Simulated assay, not measured.
Amino acid sequence: MHEVRAVVAKSKGAPVSVETILVPDPGPGEALVKVEACGVCHTDLHYREGGINDDFPFLLGHEAAGRVEAVGAGVTDLAPGDFVILNWRAVCGECRSCKRGRPWYCFATHNAKQKMTLADGTALSPALGIGAFAEKTLVAAGQCTKVDPAAPATAAGLLGCGVMAGIGAAINTGNVTRGDSVAVIGCGGVGNAAIAGARLAGARKIIAVDIDDRKLDMAVKLGATHTVNSKSTDAVEGIRAATEGNGADVVIEAVGRPETYKQAFFGRDLAGTVVLVGVPTPDMVLDLPMIEVFGRGGSLKSSWYGDCLPSRDFPMLIDLYLQKRLDLDAFVSETIGIDDVEKAFERMHHGDVLRSVVVF
C-alpha cells in the first residue's frame, strides 16, 4: 500500500482539497504509475460540479503521463520504468465493436479493479477511471500507452484527453484530408487541437470561430487561416465568407451547446460533415428542421475521445511532436503544483488558459 498526496472532490460544488490517499499494489492486469504531469481538464471541473455523476468522493485528474512503477500478474507488455501516457479507453478486444475491427469504439473498456481510498478507507471514484492528480495512481495495464520518453511529460500527458479529442475529431471522426475547408467553433483546448489536427491533415482553409480574441490569436498560431469573432460577426456568415459562400467541408463543434451546434450545421457546405466533440449537459435539447437535415445531406457525427485508438495514435502524435510538426507545448499555458488545482479551475472558467498542467 502506498500513501500519496492527491486532489479529491468530496462533495458537489465544494472546493477540492489535497488529501492523503492509499493506493494498493497492482493486482492482476493492473499497473502502478508514478505520475509526472497531469493537465487540468474541463471534465475534472464537471466531476467536481456533479455534472458526470454523484459518486463522490472523486479522485480528480486524468490527462497524464508518467513512469510505470510496478505491474501485476499477467502483465507482459509493460515493465517498471516505461514512460506512458494514461488513457481512458483500455480496449477489451472482446466486445462486438472490437470483434468487428473497430476497437476505437470499444463498448467495454476497463479500469483497475482495486479501489484507491481515503486514509479512513472511503473508496474513491477516479475521474475517467484514472485519477491522476496524485503522486501515484492505479490503473488497468491497458490504460498505459508506451511512447518515446524523449517527450516531456507536460506535453505528452495532454494527449490523454483534450488534445487527442480535438486532433481526433478532425482526423479520425471528420476524416479531414488534403484540400478540405474546415471550421472549428469554440477555440479552447479541444477546439485549438482540432485546428492543429486539420493542419496536420492538409486542410487548405481552417476557420476559427470564438468570442474571445485571445483564443483566436492562439488558433492562428496553431494553424487557423481565418478567424471569426462571433460576438461581432454572425458565425455562419463568417464561415461562408471564407469559403466562397459555400460553407466548410467539415465543421467541428467544440462547445457542446445547441446554439453553436446549429451554427455548425448551417455553416457546412452541402454534403459536408458536422462533428460534435463539445460535451453537452443532459438537459440540452437540439431543435432542427428535419427537411434541412435531409436536404443538406452529408454527415452528422459525434466524436468520442477523438475516436482514437491510444496504441495507434499516441505514439504517432508524440513522434510528430518530436519532429516539430505538432506543437504540443503551445497548449501548456502554465505549470502548477498539486495545491493549485482549485485556482486553475478558476482560471479555466475565465478563459485565461488553454491548459494548466500539474507537475509532480
Score class of each variant (00 low, 15 high):
5 R>I: 13
7 V>K: 15
18 V>H: 15
22 L>R: 14
23 V>K: 09
26 P>W: 03
30 E>G: 01
32 L>I: 06
32 L>S: 02
32 L>E: 05
33 V>I: 11
36 E>N: 07
41 C>K: 04
42 H>T: 00
42 H>E: 03
49 E>S: 05
49 E>W: 05
53 N>L: 08
54 D>T: 12
55 D>S: 08
57 P>G: 05
60 L>E: 08
61 G>A: 10
64 A>N: 08
66 G>D: 08
67 R>W: 09
68 V>M: 07
72 G>V: 05
73 A>C: 03
74 G>K: 00
76 T>R: 14
78 L>C: 05
81 G>A: 02
86 L>C: 01
89 R>W: 01
92 C>L: 02
104 W>P: 05
104 W>A: 14
104 W>F: 14
107 F>S: 15
107 F>Y: 10
115 K>F: 15
119 A>D: 14
123 A>I: 10
134 A>T: 13
136 K>L: 15
137 T>V: 12
138 L>T: 13
140 A>H: 10
154 T>V: 07
155 A>D: 07
157 G>K: 02
158 L>G: 01
159 L>I: 02
160 G>Y: 02
160 G>W: 03
163 V>R: 00
165 A>Y: 06
176 V>C: 00
179 G>T: 07
182 V>S: 07
182 V>Y: 00
193 A>P: 01
199 R>T: 10
199 R>G: 11
206 I>A: 02
206 I>F: 06
214 R>S: 14
216 L>F: 09
218 M>S: 05
222 L>A: 04
224 A>Y: 01
229 N>F: 08
232 S>E: 15
237 E>Y: 07
239 I>T: 13
242 A>D: 15
243 T>E: 13
246 N>A: 15
246 N>Q: 15
247 G>M: 12
247 G>P: 12
250 V>D: 10
259 E>I: 11
266 F>I: 01
269 D>F: 00
272 G>I: 04
273 T>A: 10
273 T>W: 06
279 V>N: 06
281 T>C: 09
286 L>S: 08
287 D>K: 13
294 F>P: 01
294 F>G: 11
296 R>T: 14
298 G>W: 06
307 D>K: 01
314 F>A: 09
315 P>A: 03
320 L>H: 12
320 L>C: 10
322 L>M: 09
329 D>F: 05
335 T>C: 13
347 R>M: 09
347 R>F: 09
351 G>K: 03
360 F>W: 03
